[in-house]
């Protein structure tokens, strides 16, 4: 199941904060370790006033669930009720101007909360981009907690969903090239693949292209 959450975040960094709150809310409601296994991403919304929305993929790997949609305490009514509850919680999170949509195979029309057409289209766009991995940047994803400290590229690929590492500016690299993750790794989704952009840094290592807390110098006047 994929949930799209649009809280009118400006850019990726702002949307990170929303993504973490979605994860906390979803994890608490769903129980177990589901919160740890949620995949969260941010997505640019370019129709209307440009902003950034969040997607949340709930794992579909509960083996004892006949419907396979990962909802604990199943029973159709329980699952649906829990889903409604989650969507309501997330809608409270983003407020009346925001929107939340949830889709799953057995919910052909999805669950929809919100009235603002810009936010609704943003939430739907986030769901679509996450489902196809066509665009966006991953915030939480399988293996993210293993991407800490300095790692060779080969280990980085082994430990996470990252499909490839791309060096901005075209410097050569191989599996042994060291990446100082700085404990902040935001791979990008495009064309169905997960790419991590890196750039040269002090000391001959690579660092992720996106840094935590970038300068906002003079950007918001």
């Amino acid at each position: 199941m994929i949930i799209g959450v649009d809280g009118w975040s400006h850019d990726g960094e702002d949307a990170d904060h929303l993504a973490h709150r979605v994860r906390e809310g979803g994890g608490a409601l769903l129980g177990g370790d589901v919160g740890e296994r949620l995949e969260l991403a941010t997505h640019e919304v370019r129709s209307g006033r440009a902003h950034t929305a969040v997607s949340c993929c709930v794992p579909d790997d509960e083996p004892d669930r006949p419907d396979g949609h990962g909802w604990p305490d199943a029973g159709r009514q329980g699952r649906a009720g829990r889903l409604e509850g989650l969507v309501d919680v997330l809608h409270d999170l983003v407020g009346p101007d925001g929107a939340v949509v949830a889709t799953a195979p057995r919910l052909p029309d999805g669950l929809v909360r919100g009235h603002d057409t810009g936010a609704l289209s943003g939430a739907w766009a986030a769901v679509t981009a996450a489902a196809t991995r066509s665009s966006g940047r991953l915030v939480r994803y399988p293996g993210v907690d293993q991407l800490r400290g300095v790692l060779p590229v080969a280990d980085l690929l082994d430990r996470s969903v990252v499909d490839e590492v791309v060096v901005v500016g075209g410097s050569a690299h191989d599996g042994g090239t060291l990446v100082d993750t700085r404990d902040f790794v935001r791979p990008q989704l495009s064309d169905g693949r997960v790419r991590l952009l890196v750039q040269p840094a002090v000391g001959g290592v690579m660092v992720p292209f996106e840094k935590e807390n970038p300068e906002r110098c003079c950007e918001d006047h």
Binding site: H10, D11, G12, E13, T42, E44, V45, R46, A50, H51, T52, R137, V168, G169, R186, L197, F209, E210, K211, P214, E215, C217
Partner: peptide
């Protein structure tokens, strides 16, 4: 202070990371 990673949703998407 060119440190952005292209996460501004107003960006022109065809510009490369470089």
């Amino acid at each position: 202070f060119y440190t952005n990673a292209g996460t501004n949703p107003n960006r022109f998407t065809a510009y490369p990371p470089e």
